[in-house]
Amino acid sequence: MSQLSGNTKWSVAKLKERSPVRWHERIGETSIFIISLASILLIMLMAIFILKEGLMVFINPSIRAEVNFRELFLKTVWQPISEVPKYSLLPLIAGTLKTSFVALLIALPLGMLAALFISECAPKWLSEFVKPTIELLAAIPSVVIGFFCLMKVASWLAHAYEIKWLHDALTPHRLNTLVGGIGISIAVVPITFTLCEEAFHGVPESYRAASIALGATKWQTALGVVIPTAMPGVIAAILLSFGRAWGETMIALMATGNAPLLDLNILHSVRTLAATVGAEMPEVVVGSSHYHVLFLIGTILLSISFTVNGLSQLAISSLRKKLTGG
C-alpha cells in the first residue's frame, strides 16, 4: 500500500502545482477537430471541381463556338455524338421532370398514408415490424430495382399496351416514363415514409390527448392537429423525396428507355439528366465540349440538390422551433 500512497495520496502542494499539460490529449483533440473539418472541405472541393468543369462551357471560347446558351436551353435536340453535335438540355430536363413527377405521384401518397397509419393507427407490434421492413426496402440497391423494372414491370405493363385503343392513342414504348417512374418511386417511398413518420412521431402525445379530450376522433385529431403541427416536417420529406427522385441514376438508366424525346406522353421513352451522365461519361473524351456539357449537367444536379437540402433544413428548423417553442 505504500506505493499506492505515493501514487495517489494528495497534498495541497500537488493541487497547486500547475496541472501537467497532457500533450497527447491536446494533440488528439486537435486532430479530431481537424478531421471533422473534412466534410466542409469535401463539399467545397466537390462544388469547385464540378463547377470548374461545368462552367467552362460558358468560358472556353472553342467550346462556346460549339455550344451556347441558345443551343442549351432553347433548342430541342440532344444529339452529342453526330457530325454536328446538338446539345440541347431541354429534352433531358423535361424527361427528368416527367419521371420525377410520376415517381412522386406514386411515392408521396403511399409514403405519407403509410406513415400516418404507422404513427396514428397501428398497434406497437405492427409498427415494430413495419419500420425495419421499410428500412430493408430502402436498402435494396437501385441497380436491382432497375433490373426488376426492366425485366418485370416493363413486361407487366406491356400486357396493357395490347389493348388496341390504348396502343393507337399513345403508341407506347416498352421502356418508358411510367416504368422508370414506378422504379424510382420504389426507391423514394422509404424516404418519404421515414421522414413523414419521424415528423408525425415528433408531435407530442399531449397534443393528441388534448384533441381527443375535446371529443375529436382519432382521424379528426390526425388531420386537424397532427398533420398541421408536423407540416414543416412533411414539406421537408417532400423536398428530400424530390431530391432523391431527381438525381436517381441507375433506375433511370435501366428503365426509361433513354431516348431524349421532348413530349408529355408518359408511355414514351425519356432520358433523364443523371442517366445521360451515367451513359455518356464513360465514353467521352476528357476536355471536349461534350465532356464539359456533361459537367454542366452535374452542376445543375448539384445546385438542385443544394437548394432542396437548404429548403428542407429551413423547414425542419421551423418545425423544431414550433415544437420546442424556441
Binding site: 493541487l15 497547486k16 500547475r18
Partner: peptide, 20 residues
C-alpha cells in the same frame, strides 16, 4: 477553499481537484 487552497484559482485544474 479546500484545505486553504482556493479551488477556483487559475492554476487549479478541475481534473486534479476531482481526484481529491
Amino acid at each position: 477553499f479546500l484545505d486553504g487552497v482556493n479551488i477556483y484559482d487559475k492554476g487549479i485544474h478541475p481534473v486534479e481537484l476531482r481526484r481529491r
